[in-house]
Write a protein that binds this DNA or RNA. Sequence first.
DNA 1: ATGGTCCCCTGACCGC
DNA 2: TGCGGTCAGGGGACCA
Length: 269
Amino acid sequence: MPELPEVETIRRALEPHLYGRHITAVAIREPRLRWPVPADLADLIGGKKILTLERRGKYLLLKTDRGTLIVHLGMSGSLRLTPSWEAGRHDHVVLCLDGASYLIFHDPRRFGTLLWSETPQRHPLLRHLGVDPFDPRFGGEFLHRAARGCRRVVKSFLMDQRIVAGVGNIYANESLFAAAIHPARTAGRISRARYEILARSLRRILADAIDQGGTTLRDFTDAKGRPGYFQLALKVYGRENQPCSRCDTPIRRSIQGQRATFHCPRCQR
DNA sequence: ATGGTCCCCTGACCGC
DNA sequence: TGCGGTCAGGGGACCA
């Protein structure tokens, strides 16, 4: 489900309600996620005070006064904050907070992650993450340099979390369309000038998507249950055979790296 | 090192 | 109504 804009949407909705709260109890109802939820999570996080909720790529970091809960939502994960809670299907982990509210990790497909770390930046899952698209270091020059000698197709290059952290399938497709770059072009053979356009397109699209509360294709909602609206602004993703917004040529769907790829065969070269 | 494939899992949808 | 096939926003493990 969630790429950078959706994760950021959840982060913004949650953080003001989490700051300074204490975790009073933890219930692990289903530990079998991407990796097992630590059986002693209650001991690790119980009684801790929440300091911040940060985002690193598609990860959320719930920082406490001692240690950090690392959260990844996978394809179908969500976090929601409710004043009351009745056990629902796929509500795998529940954090009880002081002030009688519940932070619920819900994930039907269980591709998500909940792990504990005292040094999250050095955690194996986070250590190799690339720059955030909103980091000042990110830009056309950065992409051009990172792509030097790279023989992969540009779309999978863009989705490689070790290069840029946070870009998934929707926003890779959309930013390549905005930059008029064919998704199957070899990453290492794209000019610096075109990477400048791609970097700007990506930033603008991610920022717009955050403003719209993310993209809701099926079931994405923020921490209060509200859907996003950026799906209304999608130009190619999920639009196979529909006319290109720029030239009316039917949008084409293909498969790259086991994932659906959408592009306009006329606009994108 | 690099790049491509497989697979983890559930649910929704489609055609028969 | 039921059944089988396909597809889905991610990414680590494994292989050449």
